[in-house]
Design a protein around this nucleic acid. Structure first.
Length: 887
RNA sequence: GCGGCUAUAGCUCAGUUGGUUAGAGCGCCACGUUGACAUCGUGGAGGUCCCCUGUUCGAGUCAGGGUAGCCGCACCA
């Protein structure tokens, strides 16, 4: 026998097998044109982040697909890496500085970046180590980082190329200004939150009269930058005022009263103060009417020097109160109404975004977006679930230019140099030393860095050596386009769409054909896992408790495509029980296996019906699992695997085989072992992509079966079961169903009637002629599995007196129980069954009595219905006969 | 406001192009187990498939309308 502990202990095996595979480079995909590549880009986690359940799920799915394809013979490359994550990382270091009483500005740029680099070297990449605990089979030889020199060159290349083509430009725009971080952030890093605010009603004096124009605003402090008041041109109340001027309090500025269709007469007073430098809509109006743009705020959100006392230098929110107070003093305040409004907040610092007029770098998106949108329209780019296509298209069709400059120090610095002499701009793949216009050496580089996503969007390209023309380019042509991107729906715009755009722009192909959106991980109340709520599950903790295989299996089986998964720690017991079940199934087989055991090819064996069914069932499982994986139904694939191993292999396959395993007849034992080793080997192959460790350990202990051919070094390189190549026993599998029905029927009657399980009863089974032989051949199984002492089968078995009965399709079972029979109980049971069947029969009859059904339903459905009717009638008749006998 | 998704067993969800008696896991109840596994076995209870209307021989499945919940995006100063 082969020794195995009574239960599986993950820690003993996980890292052993993982390290073995890494050492032997099982996960590395070297360029090999003889093999077809299968590539998945790992969405690079932030270099400073820690593993959480979202990664646990998303990356488990990627590993499942990678391992599956690798076993199928593809050259599987799962490209790992990290993202420098500009804002996120810089914030963490700034926080650390704060504790020491330092600031980044105090430290200076060079020292600060040095500090960041040290910090990143120390804490960065922890997450990659954590991936190893999960067992992820990434190609570690290709590990990439967005600030690697090679990848940075690609960033530079793209910037210069797009700049020269006029797709990158510098412009003065309202940007989302984060006053805490003092940088512009993109629209996609902004989140809206509802705020309980106020709507203030003021009056501005009309110049040259003693009348006023009433306005309403939520942001009184911005009035210091007002350059107009706008009304709707069709608003009769204000028609006469159009063209006149109002005198702006405090700054004493004359501002025009203009007409613009943007203004809704119903809202507020129907007159709007216009502050073009502090509101996106006002900005547009300002451009339309050539108004002045007056910025009245500093980068830290205080009132600027161009504002009068007492406002000057005041924080924007204090200034709001102060303006209201002063307006009251001037008698220009009418009222304040409570008002709910949604305001943009910074995702990072959580502060309210200040629209701020500033010079920033932008990418023109329209031209880039069109091919990316077309690809989704034509179906070249497919989303799973498909519904995300609309969201993707809506965004691309309404795309805004992308603000790519950030006022940070951590990231790729904008490769633009300003000339002090001629004010011209220079750029280049390498740092220029002279102005490209006037050759002056007096040039200084832009202070800003590029948005993190400006390097992430190159992920399908730069890690493969692009834009290098040299050898690496072969890698690129081999691995790009990649096969499937597995990611979270939150970054469909930030990342997915942009990768599509840039790949199409520079290579005229999509970076991937399929985009799979994995489920969002939530707690039992349906709230997203978040640090602040503290409701997350730490994957490392659950791995510690249940093992990596259990965590992977549970996460995937719980997660439907795209939706949300509700999880709690206890759920992982599900996986842990399953892993242990597999272990113990193997243990049973191993107990009867000798190291020198002779295993025979299946075709040379006189297989039993149960064995043929099991082998057939294995083929069925392989078929379903493969087709589910082909269509990205990963949880269904995993569920089928579970169902096969537990419900088919363990509950029936092993139970049936037990007596043969302990048979003294060597040929019987050998036959049983040959079948079980064959099926177990196959089951471990099916399971491996999800549960790499337990499967690997058992597989190495399992002797090689001749039908599986030559064994590679590791299960992760062994062939995945392909249904077309597996033996099939369709007819036998059908026959076996009847045996299962008979066994279940007897068990059910016994238990419902409360018969002691140990009591062995004789059974009389009346079977239809075509099943007679099958059933008599199955007597041993029926006896053992249904606890029956003796079986009599025949076509015209008479019902013995005082019998319990079970009726099925093609058979009828009598269990003579003598004095044990509780007649009332049995009559009740049979009557309930009778009623149930009669209901079904009535349904079938009404169908068949319907002329339309008979005339229009397809022949096979009709035939099926008639067969059902006959079957029902037979069963009902059988019940009646039994009831008669009992009364 | 615009767009999307969801509604099936106590809970979490499957149910593919309409066609046998709607399934799984967990939970619950009962019985059982000294030889793979109590991380177990066997059996059972539990469902007006959210509501209405329609299409159809036939609807959990398709169409229209409603209700409830969730999620994006844009927002009115």
């Amino acid at each position: 026998m082969i020794e195995l502990e009574p239960s599986y202990n993950p820690k003993q095996y996980e890292q052993k097998w993982y390290q073995n595979s890494v050492k032997k480079k099982h996960f590395s995909a070297a360029l090999n044109t003889e093999k077809v590549p299968f590539t998945i880009l790992m969405p690079p986690p932030n270099v400073t982040s820690q593993l959480h359940m979202g990664h646990g799920l998303g990356y488990s799915i990627q590993d499942l697909l990678t391992r599956w394809k690798r076993m199928k013979g593809f050259n599987a490359c799962w490209l790992p890496g990290t993202d420098h994550a500009g804002i996120a990382t810089q914030m963490m270091v700034e926080k650390e500085l704060e504790k020491e009483g330092l600031t980044r500005r105090g430290l200076g740029r060079e020292k600060f970046v040095e500090r960041l680099t040290t910090w990143k070297d120390k804490y960065g990449g922890i997450i990659l180590e954590q991936f190893k605990t999960m067992g992820f089979s990434c190609d570690w030889d290709r590990l990439a980082y967005t600030m690697d020199p090679k990848l940075s060159e690609a960033v530079r290349y793209v910037f210069v190329k797009l700049y020269r083509e006029g797709l990158i430009y510098r412009g003065e725009r309202l940007v989302n200004w984060d006053t805490a971080l003092q940088t512009a952030i993109s629209d996609d890093e902004v989140e809206s939150k509802e705020i309980n605010g106020s709507l203030y009603y003021f009056r501005y004096p009309i110049e040259g009269s003693d009348t006023f124009i009433p306005i309403a605003t939520t942001r009184p402090e911005t009035m210091l930058g007002d350059t107009a008041v706008a009304v709707n041109p069709d608003d009769d109340r204000y028609k006469d005022l159009i063209g006149k001027k109002a005198r702006l309090p405090f700054v004493d500025r004359l501002i025009p009263i203009i007409a613009d269709n943007y203004v809704k007469s119903e809202f507020g007073t129907g007159a709007v103060k216009i502050t073009p430098a502090h509101d996106p809509n006002d900005f547009e109006i300002g451009k339309r009417h050539s108004l002045a743009f007056i910025n009245v705020m500093t980068e830290i959100g205080t009132m600027a020097d161009n504002t009068p006392p007492p406002f000057r230098g005041m924080d924007r929110f204090l200034a709001r109160k102060e303006v209201v107070k002063q307006m009251k003093l001037l008698g220009l305040f009418d009222e304040e109404k409570a008002y709910k409004t949604t305001l943009p907040h910074s995702e990072r610092s959580k502060t309210i975004i200040e629209p701020r007029l500033s010079l920033q770098w932008f990418v023109k998106m329209k031209e880039l977006a069109e091919p990316a949108a077309d690809a989704a329209r034509s179906g070249d780019l497919q989303f799973h679930p498909e519904s995300w296509r609309k969201t993707y298209l809506y965004w691309l069709d309404n795309i805004q230019d992308w603000c790519i400059s950030r006022q940070l120090w951590w990231g790729h610095r904008v490769p633009i140099w300003y000339c002090r002499a001629c004010e011209g701009l220079s750029t280049g793949i390498t740092d220029p030393t002279h102005c490209e216009h006037c050759k002056s050496a007096e040039i200084v580089q832009d202070e800003d860095v590029l948005d993190t996503w400006f390097s992430s969007w190159l992920w399908p390209l730069s890690p493969f050596g692009w834009p290098d023309e040299e050898s690496k380019l072969k890698d690129l042509n081999y691995f790009n386009p990649t096969d499937v991107l597995v990611t979270a729906p939150e970054i469909i715009f930030l990342w997915v769409a942009r990768m599509a755009m840039v790949n199409l722009k520079f290579r005229q192909t999509l970076p991937f054909k399929h985009v799979y959106f994995n489920a969002t991980v939530c707690d039992k109340q349906g709230r997203k896992f978040s640090k602040t709520l503290g409701n997350g599950i730490d994957p490392l903790e659950v791995i510690e408790q249940y093992g990596a295989d259990a965590v992977r299996f549970t996460a995937i089986s719980l997660a439907p495509l795209g939706g949300r998964v509700r999880m709690e720690k206890a759920d992982f017991e599900h996986g842990s029980r399953f892993v242990n079940k597999i272990w113990n199934a193997a243990r049973l087989i191993f107990q009867h296996l000798e190291p020198s055991q002779a295993l025979t090819p299946l075709r040379e064996l006189p297989l039993t019906l149960a064995e043929k069914w099991l082998i057939h069932r294995f083929k069925e499982a392989a078929l379903r699992i493969n087709s589910n994986l082909d269509t990205f139904r990963v949880n269904d694939a995993v569920e089928e695997m579970h169902h096969f191993i537990w419900g088919a292999l363990c509950d029936w396959g092993l139970e049936c085989a037990k007596t043969d395993l302990s048979s003294t007849d060597i040929s019987v034992k050998n036959r049983a072992l040959s079948v079980l080793v064959y099926v177990l080997d196959g089951a471990l192959r099916l399971a491996h992509p999800v549960m790499p460790f337990v499967s690997e350990e058992l597989w190495h202990k399992l002797p090689a079966h001749p039908d599986w051919g030559k064994r590679p070094d590791s299960l992760c390189l062994a062939g995945y079961p392909e249904a077309e190549l597996l033996p099939s026993f369709t007819e036998e599998a059908k026959l076996w169903k009847t045996i299962q029905d008979i066994i279940s029927g007897i068990r059910s009657v016994r238990q419902q009637m409360g018969l002691p399980p140990k009591e062995e009863l004789p059974a009389f089974i009346r079977v239809d002629s075509e099943l007679r032989e099958t059933v008599s051949n199955a007597e041993d199984w029926i006896k053992r599995l249904a606890r029956v002492s003796q079986i009599t089968t025949g076509q015209d078995i008479k019902r013995p007196n005082q019998s319990l009965t079970s009726i099925g399709k093609g058979f009828e079972i009598y269990l003579p129980v003598g004095g044990l029979i509780d007649i009332d109980k049995e009559v009740k049971r049979l009557k309930t069954e009778d009623q149930r069947l009669k209901k079904i029969l009535a349904g079938l009859n009404s169908k068949l009595d319907n002329e339309n059904f008979v005339a229009r339903a397809p022949e096979d459905v009709l035939e099926q219905t008639r067969a059902q009717k006959l079957n029902m009638e037979e069963q009902i008749a059988a019940i009646k006969k039994n009831l008669d006998a009992l009364s």
